[in-house]
Design a protein around this nucleic acid. Sequence first.
DNA 1: TTGTACGCGTTATCAC
DNA 2: GTGATAACGCGTACAA
Lengths: 346, 346
Amino acid sequence: MSKKKNVTFDDIAKFTNFSKTTISRYFNDPDSLTLENQAIISHALEELNYKENKVAKILANGKTEFIGIIIPSLFNHYYSEMLNQILLTYETFGYKFLVFVGNEREETERRYIEELMAYKIEGMIILSYTLSSRELAGLQIPIVTIEREDEYVCSVNTDNYMGAVQAVSLLAGKGCDVLIHTNSPISSNLPAYGRIRGFLDVCLEKNLRHQILYKPFAHNYDLTQIYLQEILDELETKYKGMKKGIFVSNDDHANILLNLLVRKYGRLPDDYLIIGFDNSPVSTGAVFPISTVGQQIDRIAYEAVKLLVDLMNERKKRRPVPLREPIHKVVPPVLLRRATTEDHSE
Amino acid sequence: MSKKKNVTFDDIAKFTNFSKTTISRYFNDPDSLTLENQAIISHALEELNYKENKVAKILANGKTEFIGIIIPSLFNHYYSEMLNQILLTYETFGYKFLVFVGNEREETERRYIEELMAYKIEGMIILSYTLSSRELAGLQIPIVTIEREDEYVCSVNTDNYMGAVQAVSLLAGKGCDVLIHTNSPISSNLPAYGRIRGFLDVCLEKNLRHQILYKPFAHNYDLTQIYLQEILDELETKYKGMKKGIFVSNDDHANILLNLLVRKYGRLPDDYLIIGFDNSPVSTGAVFPISTVGQQIDRIAYEAVKLLVDLMNERKKRRPVPLREPIHKVVPPVLLRRATTEDHSE
DNA sequence: TTGTACGCGTTATCAC
DNA sequence: GTGATAACGCGTACAA
């Protein structure tokens, strides 16, 4: 009673007068036993209170059913919701997730990956953007990245370009005199760069007056607010009296911009239309609900895990066919029209 | 080259003419080898490109260094940030985390726990509130819960009572004529019930006019907004002209309330003071920064993991001393004074 | 300081 | 249908 060692197949075998092999088959191929014997074993399991040991199973058959995840800080809602949706796929695919929070230091993330490999994970999902896709590709393990540089690895991303096109088209359709896009200077090999391309392409094609305002990426609220105030000041003077359609790089920034305006005017002035990106909770929780380009996080997460599962399955075959080219899946965004792009003149 | 089976201690042993034991000791007790031999083995590891296999290690010594986590949806910032901070403790304690998102169905969560047990986790952190602490306590594995019913298990919680005391004291100090607390009817065995007790105790002690307004807990934004509008309507008529200090049950609700007021008046009227709970991002991102009782999520997460590590270590001893009583740790909150409790008359 | 032999709890490969 | 027996890769008495 005191030394309660775990009940093993051996114990069950002795108890039932079967062999370990038969017990194993009871779990992995029950049909190969007579119903009668199944019942006997089933009863023994109850009697002995058997608990399975997957660690031993792994060692024997090599299948951990582990997927490793490296994700940047969950402070950002986009990442936490993505992780949420990824974890929920356990119900569909049965894979378990070992999660590390990347801290933007290369050496640290390499350590995380080593640790994951030591636990014999079958695949990885990378949202962290610290390590190059080239380095990741060298890891010799199925990998899918989400919304980051992905030249040498498989990935699932939002169709950022399409999102920008939808946003700008909405603003243009509302009769804006000038279209503004605010963003940080980002590398053209990032999926999010599509937002800039989409903005420019539509403006040029439709021959719309437009301007992109770049500010450095700020990691904290106060600095971001300062940058956006600067942008606002510029707009107020430069485009005075004109109807301004502003496509902000994300909902957090759109919310700050909206707040600056509401604090100044007590409402959103008629000559300002705002649209953000992400459909994060701030966009609905804002003082006036913010129009936004919604990322379908649930679908992205599902597609990412599904793609990874496919890759992992291929690898288990007797003659795996390696991918010639990385697969890049794209999930369409959803335009959400809310108060900040409706006519708000009373 | 094609059949790249993993390099094992055996391979290294043959390569170096040592025994497996010596290789094992190289990793676990290097000082027991001569520096010379350490160098030889070290070199062989490079040469053969050895990768450690923790699964085999686990089977041999029983230590998985796994902690299981069951957490409700990460949509709520409080939970995602808590998970974030828990995951970050890997750097301190070295434990890896297997994470499941609870979906509020008892049977499902029991399955999750079974799965975790099968992987021989050494302990669990439970944020999900689906299963009773009584049931959890029966699991015979170290468990720490966070901010949920915890009668029979160890836990770490915010000092909700103290938080409420601070909030109410702030409002009272600002000369409010009446103090309001909005909340959902919650069970008195939840840590969050301390907010209600704290509110009442201070009001009664200081002999302040006060009222608690209960509304059912709504899972979506729109319904919550409707409830808060009802509350607002009641306040507007009942306490017309009086200075109202409102202690809202959380920041999300405080933000909605603030938005309702700002949409109506273009600003926060002078006779309304608002304070929320949690210090979640909405409180700083609101149109007017919302005063709040901040939970020290980083400290709670750290204390929870630390407590769990202590429990797990005790269990590894030759003669573990079982806890007579569950340990309940409490982390003090931090009052954050922001715009919604400052004088905002101009 | 180093080596031998066995155990950890399963699965896989043969036999019967 | 069922059973021996050998992996899987590492840790750990116990010896030497």
